[in-house]
Computed example of a mutant assay.
Amino acid sequence: MAKILIVEDNAANMRLACLLLTQAGHSVLCARDAETGLALARNDQPQLILMDIQLPGMDGLAATSLLKGDAQTAAIPVIALTAMAMKEDREKTRLAGCNAYITKPLRYKELYEVIDTLLATDLPQ
């Protein structure tokens, strides 16, 4: 399965995402802030990133923009995780470079479906 980076500052949300991903057979990298997430993305080259939008310090949109602007990490698909569910919030994530958008609380079927779709289309064959 895939190596997936989770960037999430909320401990309960992090535990849930880790549990869901490991149960699906993925290996998981964890970061509690954007700066750590950027470093892990560059150094460990995950196949996919789950990015919380509301992070302390640098937010997830700024971090995604940096990832997409870096040749080392630009091709890694990013799924925005957010409690904000307004149409304009979805547009902001798209403009920052996110490949998909999932609202919290996480629903495992939706999470698995989005991950499977992105991995099928974005992983090199």
Results as ranks from 00 to 15, higher is better:
L16D: 11
L38F: 00
Q125Y: 14
S65D: 03
A96R: 00
T64D: 00
T103I: 11
A2W: 03
A63D: 05
Y112K: 14
L55E: 13
E91P: 05
A96E: 02
C30M: 13
A31Y: 10
T36R: 10
T64V: 02
V28F: 06
T82V: 11
T93P: 11
P124W: 05
A100R: 08
M51V: 08
A85E: 12
M51I: 06
I115N: 01
T93D: 03
E113D: 11
K109C: 07
Q23E: 14
T36K: 09
A100W: 11
T64W: 00
M58A: 09
A74E: 06
R15Q: 15
L111G: 02
D70F: 07
P56A: 08
A71F: 06
G60R: 02
R94T: 13
Y101E: 05
D70P: 06
L67V: 12
R94P: 05
T36N: 06
P77D: 00
S65R: 15
R42Q: 00
D52M: 10
R94Y: 12
A83H: 13
A11F: 11
A74R: 06
Q47G: 14
L61V: 01
D89F: 02
R94D: 02
T73E: 08
K68D: 02
A2D: 03
A11T: 11
I4M: 02
L123E: 03
N99H: 10
K104A: 04
L66A: 14
N10S: 14
E8V: 10
L19V: 15
S27F: 00
L66Q: 14
E91Y: 12
T121N: 03
V78C: 10
Q47Y: 09
A75R: 05
L123C: 06
Y101R: 03
L95W: 07
L29S: 05
L5I: 05
T117E: 12
G69F: 10
E35C: 11
R42S: 01
C18Y: 14
L66M: 13
D59G: 13
L48Y: 09
A96T: 01
D9R: 00
E8N: 12
A41V: 00
L20I: 08
K104S: 09
L81N: 11
G97K: 01
V78Y: 08
I76K: 06
A39W: 10
D9I: 03
I53P: 15
I4P: 02
Y101G: 09
P46W: 01
L119C: 07
K68C: 03
L48A: 09
I76W: 07
N99A: 11
K109F: 10
R15F: 15
D89C: 03
A71M: 07
D44T: 07
G37P: 04
K68F: 04
M51C: 10
K109A: 12
L61R: 09
E88R: 12
I4L: 02
T73P: 09
L119T: 05
R32I: 11
N13H: 09
A24P: 09
D89H: 10
P124Y: 05
A120W: 10
K87I: 15
D33L: 01
L118P: 12
K109I: 08
A96P: 04
L40I: 07
T36Y: 04
I115C: 01
D122H: 14
K92L: 08
V7E: 03
L55Y: 12
V78Q: 04
E91K: 10
L61A: 03
A62V: 14
